[in-house]
Structures are given as C-alpha cells and as structure tokens.
Amino acid sequence: MTESGFRDLEQSIIQRLEKGLDKRLTYHNLQHTKDVLKQAVRIAGEEGINNEKQLLLLRIAALYHDIGFLDTYRGHELRSCEILMDDFSNGTLGTNDLESIKGMIMATRIPQSPANLLEEIICDADLDYLGREDFPPISQHLMKEFLEYGIIKTEQEWDPIQIAFFEKHQYFTRSSQTNRQPGKLRHLQILKDSQEKASQNRDGK
C-alpha cells in the first residue's frame, strides 16, 4: 500500500467512525482513534522504528483498533479484526501482514498482552493519556461512557476502579516509561488522596 493509499484508507475510516459511532461513546470515539494513531507514530519514532512496512502496519492497526465499536461494545477487538479482514479481502495486504495487524489490535484488549515491540507500541499509544496533562478531562469522558453503558452505576464507583486499573497497568516501551510513567504516578497519587479525603468525610472525621 502506498502512502496515498493509506491516506485514502484513513479518510474512509474517519468517515465511517464519524457517521457510525454511538454518540454515547464519549471516550471510544473518533478523537480517541486519531490520538492513538498520532501517539503510535510518535512512540515508534522514539523506539527507533524506521521500517516503512512496519510503520504502515502499525498505522493501519491504530486506525482499526476500535472500529469494532461500530457494531458492539464488549468484544469490540474481535469485531475490529473481522472488519479489517473484510476490508482487505481484496488481497491488498498479505496474510502475514494482516495477522500482524490483528495481533496489534488484540494486544490492546484489557489486560494488555503485547508479544512484540509493535504490539507494545500500540498498547502504550492506546493508554498514553494516563500519563498526560489532559488525563482529567479524558478520564471524565470515560466515566460518562461507563455510566451510559451501565458498566458503573454511580460516579462514586469511578475513582476506586481507576486506582485499581492504574496499579495493574504498566507501560511497555522505554519511551513511555520515561515520558508517561511519572505523570501517571502523579495522577494515581491525586486519585488516592481524593479517595482518602472522601473516606474521611464519610466517616465524619
């Protein structure tokens, strides 16, 4: 696939997501997919990935990693892989390339399970925001989505879920460990302090 071919694909995916995603997806929306694509390319550069074929497959994986949300919430990664295979049934990409892309998509499933550097890069890109300054508003968007879909029932459930997730999560690439881990630890401490304060207030201390 040429660079112009990728650009055409990117525009096609953007249009499909714009038109087809449920408006209740306040986190898993078009902006998230664009962000993951941007961060994946950045992290790949920092990790020394300069092979054009690898970069192309990574960018395609980033575009497709959440496209399954067009059809389903739970199990969206598998659906993303199915849509990928349908879209490339014309033979534009070989079997090995498609398997590589599917591996990257499935690696983002929580708990993340990357098996190689490209999979590590997309996993870190997918959760890049955990260590960024814009974590608070993005976190609120995810909480709103979880409330809309009944994954949590009340806002009070959210911070304990976030704390547990933070404590299990790890960044895989050296660049994300350097650039995002410190910010993530700061956000975790803020969440813990907030929880402790809320607990003290409930106990009347």
Results as ranks from 00 to 15, higher is better:
67 I>L: 13
98 L>I: 15
49 I>S: 05
106 M>A: 03
187 H>P: 03
170 Q>I: 11
111 P>Y: 06
4 S>L: 11
44 A>C: 03
16 R>C: 08
151 I>T: 09
140 Q>K: 12
105 I>S: 03
98 L>P: 12
158 W>M: 02
22 D>K: 02
168 K>Q: 09
108 T>G: 05
77 E>Q: 15
111 P>E: 06
105 I>T: 09
190 I>T: 07
84 L>T: 10
127 L>T: 07
94 G>L: 13
76 H>V: 07
20 G>I: 01
77 E>S: 11
135 F>N: 04
165 F>S: 14
12 S>D: 13
119 E>D: 00
185 L>N: 09
49 I>N: 02
148 E>F: 11
141 H>Y: 06
27 Y>T: 03
190 I>E: 10
204 G>Q: 01
193 D>K: 03
79 R>A: 10
6 F>W: 05
51 N>D: 15
108 T>Q: 10
30 L>S: 02
106 M>Y: 04
113 S>W: 13
38 K>R: 15
93 L>F: 11
60 I>K: 08
104 M>V: 04
158 W>N: 05
205 K>D: 01
97 D>Y: 07
53 K>P: 04
106 M>D: 03
134 D>N: 13
33 T>V: 15
142 L>T: 02
70 L>G: 09
73 Y>S: 11
56 L>M: 15
189 Q>L: 08
124 D>G: 08
4 S>E: 14
77 E>R: 10
135 F>Q: 11
153 K>Q: 10
188 L>F: 01
134 D>H: 12
47 E>K: 06
100 S>K: 15
151 I>V: 13
22 D>P: 00
139 S>T: 06
35 D>S: 15
25 L>Q: 08
156 Q>E: 15
205 K>T: 01
170 Q>C: 07
128 D>F: 13
51 N>R: 14
31 Q>C: 01
31 Q>D: 14
144 K>F: 00
119 E>S: 01
201 N>M: 08
35 D>H: 14
119 E>R: 00
34 K>D: 05
